[in-house]
Design a protein around this nucleic acid. Structure first.
Lengths: 247, 247
DNA sequence: CTTGACCTTCACGCAACGTCAACCTGTACC
DNA sequence: GGTACAGGTTGACGTTGCGTGAAGGTCAAG
């Protein structure tokens, strides 16, 4: 028994294009080629094709399938490797789903909309993970609630203040001012006051916050956009401030 | 403040290639182009870039991101659509993981190895889902245990018998024999006997099995490989047999 | 002037085919 | 023999989001 390319495609539920593809890449050769160039497949080819499709349904890539079918790789080993990859993918998806859900919830609460209008460039909701991971959900929720109670004008004022402080600090860093100087420490005090509106950090937390500005590229970008190195400069200034003024 | 392509790439943690890509596709244009062709980005561009990367981390495609950023699509709607897609992907992955685990278990029990040697073309383990779904796990396990107790010679004999019956039925269908004829019904009896080795179907189940041979392309392929239409022919013959001989 | 870092524009590569396009073959019917 | 129609063939581009050279111009420093 022998079949044309269409017949065998229908038989196993695939397309002739796929079979030609498998031929081209050497995964499944026709058992015979007609003098007219037509491809013909026999029962052995059918069996091989069915195994190919079985492994394909499991998500294996075609090169991996070829390795298994040609006896180069053990079936179970290939599947174990594949399984690990699948599990990782699933975890990644789970994290992504959680993030998207959070983001949706926030946009529905209008938070993101405000962010779009006002907070662009320093969207506090964007950093939920960091805040929550390091200082707990309570602080974060508190911070959010406080933010939500504000009028748009008040929110804008806060953002403007943040921008001013950041810019002034950047300028100080460009001038090379000592981070311990009165002027710089005065700017840091304004920064601390600004932060305190959302959440009151102790010495350790405030120092930690400064480190985060440098460690997390998203924060870094938001300070370095005023001047390169501004984030690191702010971190140093914050440390001095914390050690002098906080417990 | 203005940055070169490398600077802004490092600032947000991406590559200059990516930024050129976004430029090419119109997702993020540089704020200014130098007379030398260099790309320069200002703060507004930085903000837009950060939003792009935020959405990208959520898994949105670049065209979708463009739609959101240009205000053509609502953020939350885009995210909802995306979330549905993510959930479907996760389910698909879960199913695939289950399948791979099952397959690994079977290969480790040596079942698949035998299948590779003997059962190719009618691998009973390949159809676990159908069998389990329609007649319960007990029947399937019983069937598997029985198979496992056999010697390789016995297994081979059973497969040979199945092939003989299938081939003879295909020939009868080609000749156009009546499915109710004695000869054909004799062949069906051999088929029933063969099936009964694994599992004893009643009238309804046996008729159902015949229907499955036609409905499921994988079964169909295994009978039609002897002759086109053989699966449908067998189904008809099985129905006659069941109605005459089974309860 | 050289070096080295950075910039530019092509353009292929990846995974697994889908989808034309342009052109033969085989079979059936008149 | 002609005609129609289904089915076969070989290219070759499109898809997603960049990575990765290739080949060559630009800029600041020594």
């Amino acid at each position: 028994m022998e079949w044309s390319i269409q017949e065998i495609a229908r038989l196993v539920g695939t397309t002739s294009r796929t079979l030609r593809h498998y031929d081209d890449m050497g995964l499944l050769k026709p058992s015979r080629m007609g003098s007219n160039g037509y491809r013909y497949y026999d029962q052995a080819a059918l069996v091989r094709l069915q195994r190919i499709l079985l492994l394909r349904e499991l998500g294996l890539g075609l090169p991996a399938i070829a390795g298994v079918l040609d006896g180069q790789r053990e079936t179970s080993k290939a599947l174990m490797t594949h399984l690990k990859w699948l599990r990782q993918e699933q975890e990644r998806l789970a994290r992504q789903i959680a993030s998207v859900e959070t983001t949706i919830r926030k946009t529905e609460e209008g938070e993101q909309l405000m962010a779009e209008e006002i907070l662009d460039g320093f969207d506090n909701s964007q950093y939920e993970e960091e805040v929550v991971n390091r200082w707990g959900r309570a602080a974060y929720d508190h911070s959010n609630r406080k933010w939500a109670t504000l009028s748009k004008e008040q929110q804008r004022d806060l953002m403007v203040e943040q921008e001013r402080v950041a810019r002034a600090l950047a300028e100080a860093s460009v001038r090379g001012d000592d981070v311990a100087s009165d002027e710089v420490q005065q700017l840091v005090r304004r920064h601390y006051t600004w932060v305190s509106f959302f959440w009151t950090p102790n010495r350790e937390a405030y120092i930690h916050l400064g480190e985060m500005y440098v460690a997390d590229p998203r924060f870094t970008a938001n300070y370095d956009k005023h001047a390169p190195g501004a984030a690191a400069y702010l971190r140093d200034a914050m440390r001095v401030f914390a050690e002098r003024n906080l417990d």
